[in-house]
């Protein structure tokens, strides 16, 4: 009988001791928990992308509950999350426009050419340090996929050695834009407008030599635009999205098809 009783008592004793010890410890050494921050962390999407500028959703929630941050900083959650956070905090949400990324380059391998055989680390950042990359156009997309790897939503695809963002999947967190060594990715609002898909700041003749669809700075778009939304600077055009009416005239008139309508 004692044979059974003693081990049972020992194991039960250890269990009870552990249980009591842990419960007293968790009471004595309790750390005050910020209730608001907890609720906010639950409301936030939990992607921990860092687009808000804080170290993950928990960091943003902590800053919000202390009043150190504004409500609408989360592009992933968008307006819905901003509203929820606002209601938890009891403040006004303000406006939040949904955003998406676009790669301002059309340099597929048919449209451009290579100036060297690149055999090295499979990364755009690495290739860019070797004479600006293996493409003839030194401003264009290298196509080794740093942005695609960075994107947590799998919104970027590499097609014909050009990075293409699927704007339906993109949440506008901006991580890809930070990673692109050529700074080709722009985070824009989702309003349908024209976008100049070229970032080549060389003279027109040079651009033409390296890319079939590059912007040559001919200013046809600028002259034709009824809203005056286009300016040409440094031999490359740029569309002011707030003025663009999406009439499509610039797209028709561009001799190199460098301007596209983006939704």
């Amino acid at each position: 009988m004692m044979n059974i009783l003693i081990p049972v008592l020992i194991v039960a004793g250890i269990g009870i001791l552990a249980g009591l010890g842990l419960s007293t410890a968790s009471v004595i050494m309790a750390v005050p928990v910020d209730e608001t921050a907890e609720k906010l962390t639950e409301a936030l999407p939990g992607a921990n992308c860092g687009a808000c500028g804080f170290s993950g959703c928990a960091g943003y929630a902590a800053a919000l509950s202390k009043g150190e941050a504004k409500v609408g900083l989360c592009p992933v959650g968008g307006k819905a999350v901003a509203d929820e956070c606002a209601s938890i905090l009891g403040v006004d949400a303000g406006d939040m426009t949904p955003k998406a990324a676009i790669v301002r380059c059309l340099g597929t391998c048919d449209n451009t050419s290579v100036k060297m055989d690149y055999i090295g680390v499979d990364s755009c950042a690495a290739a860019a340090q070797l004479y600006g990359g293996m493409n003839s156009c030194r401003f264009g997309c290298i196509g080794l996929g740093d942005c695609a790897r960075e994107c947590e939503y799998h919104a970027i695809e590499l097609c014909n050695e050009l990075a293409i963002v699927d704007r339906n999947l993109c949440v506008g967190c901006g991580k890809c834009a930070k990673v692109c060594p050529k700074q080709l990715i722009e985070i824009t609002d989702r309003k349908p407008a024209a976008v100049v898909m070229c970032s080549n700041r060389d003279k027109g003749a040079l651009t033409r030599k390296v890319c079939k669809v590059g912007c040559i700075g001919c200013m046809k778009c600028q002259k034709n635009c009824p809203a005056g939304a286009i300016t040409v600077e440094n031999f490359v055009a740029h569309v002011d999205r707030s003025l663009c009416t999406n009439c499509g005239l610039c797209v028709e008139n561009c001799p190199t098809h460098a301007i596209q309508e983006i939704f």
Partner: peptide, 23 residues
Amino acid sequence: LQTIVFILIIAALVQLVEIVLKK
């Protein structure tokens, strides 16, 4: 009883360490 006792102690210990560290 080695297996049971050891794992109980280890589990409790780690929990305790976590609480102490947090505080």
